[in-house]
Design a protein around this nucleic acid. Structure first.
Lengths: 337, 337
DNA sequence: CTGAAAGCGCTTACAG
DNA sequence: CTGAAAGCGCTTACAG
């Protein structure tokens, strides 16, 4: 390939200085219109490619925002990311995506990479067990951070997530109103705020109705479709099986329904199932999945917005914004207790 | 925050030169062990962060690899990416991910960003209608490119994908052997190599069995779960409905089965369905989905490997590697024609 | 409105 | 084994 074209190539070609070329290409009003047009045309003709590393070294802004979640293949995160992507795109920020798979060392390696690249910000759904110090390390090195989906005590940064306890209680209240008394909760762990809060919502809604949740109703663990499937198979064989189940997520619920079906039960007719998240698939699943709408669009938009605000120089907020979930009743919870 | 720590901060602290610090941190054998240890310790103590922009400006290697696919939420791509990620991780390459949603201008913007960042390479599943010139632009500007899943005529770069025509014929042959004579093909378009080749495989397998595919058996278009669902609803109402359907992808097939079920048919009992890709969900779907295993692991590994090879200085290959698919029979194709 | 010069933080010959 | 100096390609005061 030909010699690399840089600012000075254009400057030499036109007999102007690199300063003028630099300003012209960025549409500075300091440059005369005619000069600007000539410069831009020449840049195009020569196939000039802007060197962001050089610019960023000088300006110490990179135009890069890092996004790190448990797994982008999880449609819940995928849907949030779609909105984040859309916001960042509009502001011409490049986004770098990484999965941490709840592995703290992977998350740390990613944050380190962002620091090395001089990234402008980070949107993070923190891995299980992330200490507040990790967030402070990022912030302390000029990497503004916004949390999504999960929160960390004492991290001192802003975050956006659904009101998980409230949302799960909504689902359980509905089932109780439909006559169910034995309601299981499938999936999630105590190690994330999401898992804890949803289980707490389930438990407190039961108690409010003067039902004491039995230990075997809490099927802890599953967070994937596959784990949900296994739980469904096992659930079908339970003695004294609950008549309804709320699930940690739609993904778990969809797997759970596959498992129930595989074991010969018909979800929606033999047992009521409610998911959490309202991912797109919930509406077309058969039976369609009743679920708690968890505001992915709002989380994505607002998290990106909050980060862009900070990049624009506005003061950081430390607030965790709880987005209010709503219940979506479909066919999977038709069965009445 | 404190003054930024850089190489010269460490050098000053220890009374050595920045050259020595630079070499020491990269474990150069030129530096005495004792000096190296002292330098590394000081770097840690001061909280030094390596500035990759500066390094990359100097060395013109960035350690960044771009990956661009239609949609990371599509499990087929997601599974490939998992393997790509794994390979790149091992070689300490940072990967930047982007969706192009089959929008050529989004794809171009991403490639441009990579060029500006001085990325070392690109792994691309090209958007519908990508001209060979786009690939050559990347290559011409020192951005080695490897294609996955889809191929482009005359692009002159290496690529990895399944043998789509062969794979689809495998599925159709199986259905014919099971007694089916009327076999639909649901989803995919003529505008991607994938869509064309799979449809060609379906058509030629039918003809080999002396069955002339009827136009209404080819349900073109659907490539998402949702579109598959709609196709399932419509399919159930067809006059003279085929007894079997092969689908463009598992995602389409799973949506299609949801649609059939919604319309009151039982996939696997009332109609045979076969998908394509063998994504993880295929095994737990109920009925479990018969499908064509499309080698995501191999595509991911080999594409990353080929790119890393080129980065290591090996000569480029222009070969398109066709990975041989295999048929996985499960319950969704139990029904016999 | 335009130019000359310094500097962002590294790495790499080169010299010793 | 270590140091002094140049240079990667930009942007930003500053001067005119």
């Amino acid at each position: 390939m030909a010699q690399k074209v840089k600012l000075s190539t254009i400057a030499d070609e036109l007999g102007v200085s690199t300063a003028t070329v630099s300003l012209a290409l960025r549409d500075s009003p300091l440059v005369a219109d005619q000069t600007r047009d000539k410069i831009k045309q020449t840049a195009r003709d020569l196939g000039y490619i802007y060197n962001r590393r050089a610019a960023s070294l000088r300006t110490s802004r990179s135009g890069i925002v890092g996004v790190c979640v448990h797994d982008v293949m999880n449609p819940f995160f995928g849907e949030i990311l779609k909105y984040v992507e859309h916001e960042l795109d509009r502001r011409r920020q490049t986004f770098i995506l990484s999965n941490h798979y709840d592995d703290l060392s992977k998350q740390r390696a990613f944050v380190d990479t962002l620091l090395q690249l001089g990234a402008d910000g980070l949107i993070l759904s923190p891995a299980v067990g992330t200490p507040a110090a990790d967030i402070q390390l990022a912030e302390g090195n000029d990497l503004p951070t916004v949390l999504i989906a999960r929160t960390i005590e004492g991290a001192g940064v802003c975050g956006f997530r659904g009101d998980d306890a409230f949302g799960m209680a909504l689902a359980v209240d509905h089932l109780i109103a439909d006559g169910h008394r034995a309601i299981a909760m499938v999936g999630g762990t105590e190690q994330t705020s999401t898992g804890r809060d949803r289980a707490a919502g389930w438990r407190s809604a039961l108690r409010k109705a003067e039902i004491e949740p039995r230990p075997e109703w809490r099927i802890e663990g599953p967070r994937s479709r596959d784990a949900g499937f296994q739980a469904g198979l096992a659930f079908a064989k339970m003695d004294d099986r609950p008549t309804a189940a709320v699930c940690f997520s739609d993904l778990v619920a969809l797997g759970f329904m596959y498992g129930l079906a595989r074991a010969g039960l018909t979800p929606g007719s033999d047992i009521a199932v409610i998911g959490y998240d309202d991912i797109e698939e919930a509406g077309i699943a058969t039976p369609s999945l009743s679920t708690v709408s968890n505001g992915q669009a709002e989380v994505g938009h607002r998290a990106a917005g909050a980060l862009l605000d900070r990049l624009a120089g506005n003061p950081p907020s430390e607030e965790t914004v709880l987005i209010r979930p709503t219940l979506k009743i479909r066919d999977s919870s038709r069965f009445r207790g």
